[in-house]
């Protein structure tokens, strides 16, 4: 039986999630692991937008902010469960992405970058300025998801950090599976065609505007759900989740690992989530080391860590 690269990616991912806990000396590592998976989910969305369809966004944290604050605000004001609130947040993100994407996706390259950046900043600004609603810059508390106690009643007792490790890990697998399926779908092929050349894609009948918008909306939903998970896990959220730095972080993770592949991007999420945690021992030098790693990786592995390594090993095998 031949295993497709899609199955390999999912198997690697599942193995990683299952095996990593054996090396965890304390429950803190489960928290970092969960954070890796949540960032990974947002970054898979960037892979669809940037890696597949070739569009840049410097404002995707805005959607993470919408997803996160939906979990905080919808239960309090609409009286719905936080789980439903996360889904509502994803819907709102999709609608906003549709409305915002229509005008700005006509732009190219850096112009698209600055337009999406503007959108992200607007969201972050509303979240921190409308204090009476959002709690302002200090943040706001989020209800418990309640799934852990349900599992507990069913006889599966997990600590809080173990639960979030498993839950966000599984969400990431589902997200990665969907993205991998999209890659070879007619839509995915059309995305890659317009990534290669918009004019050529249009010539062969690809509805460029609609496909770009689809990629934008789908990646916005990924970012929104990642934001919701972050809010639910921490039970607390601040406007920083929608900030410019978070948007940049998402893009950096994706590019560092290799934006063309789901596995590469998740690897980038691992590096940029674990590295700052590991670097806290360097305290004073943390930022310098982080900046240095970013520069060195991009200088010596221009297409990202995973694609470069894959090519290296394939090249040696021949």
């Amino acid at each position: 039986m031949r295993i497709s690269s899609k199955q390999i990616t999912l198997l690697v991912l599942l193995a990683l999630i299952a095996v990593a806990p054996f090396f965890f000396p304390s429950s803190f590592y489960y928290r970092v692991g969960a954070l890796v998976f949540i960032n990974g989910l947002a970054v898979v969305g960037i892979v669809i937008l940037t890696g597949y369809a070739g569009q840049i966004s410097l404002g995707h944290a805005g959607f993470a902010g919408i997803g996160a604050y939906a979990c905080a605000l919808a239960p309090a004001h609409l009286g719905i469960h936080v789980g439903l609130a996360a889904i509502l947040g994803a819907l709102i993100s999709a609608v906003i992405a549709y409305l915002v994407g229509r005008p700005i996706l006509r732009l190219h390259g850096y112009y698209l970058g600055v337009a999406s950046l503007g959108f992200g900043i607007l969201v972050a600004m509303v979240l921190s300025n409308e204090g009476q609603l959002t709690g302002g810059p200090d943040g706001i508390a989020v209800n418990d998801l309640g799934l852990r106690s349900v599992l507990n009643d069913m006889g599966l007792s997990l600590t809080n950090s173990e639960f979030w490790y498993a839950f966000s890990g599984l969400t990431l697998v589902v997200g990665a599976w969907l993205a991998l399926n999209l890659y070879n779908s007619p839509t995915g092929r059309a995305w890659r065609a317009l990534h290669g050349s918009e004019v050529a894609a249009r010539t062969v009948g690809v509805d460029v505007a609609r496909l770009k918008l689809q990629a934008f909306v789908i990646s916005a939903v990924y970012a929104s759900i990642a934001g919701s998970l972050l809010a639910l896990q921490n039970r607390f959220i601040t406007p920083e989740v929608a900030g410019f730095m978070h948007s940049i972080e998402m893009v950096t993770m994706a590019v560092l690992g290799g934006v063309g592949s789901v596995l590469g991007a998740i690897f980038g999420a691992i590096i940029l989530t674990v590295l700052p945690q590991a670097l806290t021992v360097f305290a004073e030098h943390e930022m310098m080391v982080l900046g240095l790693v970013m520069m060195l990786v991009m200088i010596f592995m221009r297409e990202g860590v995973v694609p470069t390594l894959l090519r290296f090993f394939r090249g040696r095998g021949e």
Partner: peptide, 15 residues
């Protein structure tokens, strides 16, 4: 990749 390099440089210089 070049953009990420300049962002890395910005973080480095700041640190």
């Amino acid at each position: 990749s070049l953009i990420i390099i300049t962002i890395g440089a910005a973080i480095f210089i700041k640190g």
